[in-house]
Design a protein around this nucleic acid. Sequence first.
DNA 1: CTCATAATGATAATCGTTTCTATTATCAGT
DNA 2: ACTGATAATAGAAACGATTATCATTATGAG
Lengths: 134, 134
Amino acid sequence: MDQPRGTRVRGTRQASAVAAALTSLPGFCSAQEIHAELRRRGEAVGLTTVYRHLQVLSEQGAVDTIRDPSGEILYRQCGSTAHHHHLTCRVCGRSVEVEGRVVEQWAEKVAAEAGFTSVDHTVELFGLCPDHSA
Amino acid sequence: MDQPRGTRVRGTRQASAVAAALTSLPGFCSAQEIHAELRRRGEAVGLTTVYRHLQVLSEQGAVDTIRDPSGEILYRQCGSTAHHHHLTCRVCGRSVEVEGRVVEQWAEKVAAEAGFTSVDHTVELFGLCPDHSA
DNA sequence: CTCATAATGATAATCGTTTCTATTATCAGT
DNA sequence: ACTGATAATAGAAACGATTATCATTATGAG
């Protein structure tokens, strides 16, 4: 846990660049999209590095991750640190945070009834946002 | 939709073998596990063929599929053809079908409020079954 | 039985993600 | 400021699940 005196996490241009990209992008995007976005901006950051920062950020709870239907992982900087779910547009990735007291309670009840413990749940909603509805 | 006279889906040893494996396996398992299980039984079926049958079966609604936390697709023959969700053991894959009227209603309500359409939802519960609880 | 053709399966290709590792850059202690 | 220990980087190669290719095999309608 504690650092061995004199060593610490270092601040780098790449770390800031990834964080900045996440802040500016409005919806969920894949690691590869973020990498492409950075190149577009002229910020040279290796794909590996993008993956590493996204992983760290998500472990810290600084970004939320979901899996799109094809299994790809999408990242997004989120407002609330509280537990919540997402309703995401299949076309543009824009997403709305939805809070799911109801779902949590349901999950706990169902798990208890079946005698399961350490229950974790994934709940994702995908649809078409107002701009992309037929 | 209709077949061009004289051609039809053929029944094969492999198709039966995959179906039989699914019937006998109690929990969710990956395509590769099913393939391994078949070899164990002495039924030689190509991995490609296993994937193909699982895909077809899931399109027909004969089996349910979920994604485990690592992104792998797991398959399972399910009792009810009605819409339902799963509470699956992280250790053994054994799973309980849970019906989620509550969740469906919640999803629809949330989607409507946000102006989203064509909303699809994925809800999966993973935990430890009674046999594998600490 | 025959034969058109559906099904198979070994191999190669895909694709997102992770590991490897030599190189570069950061920053604590001078 | 300087510098050196070492954290961070990034390209390339590895990885693992899945899908495509395509020559071969086997089904079942006639």
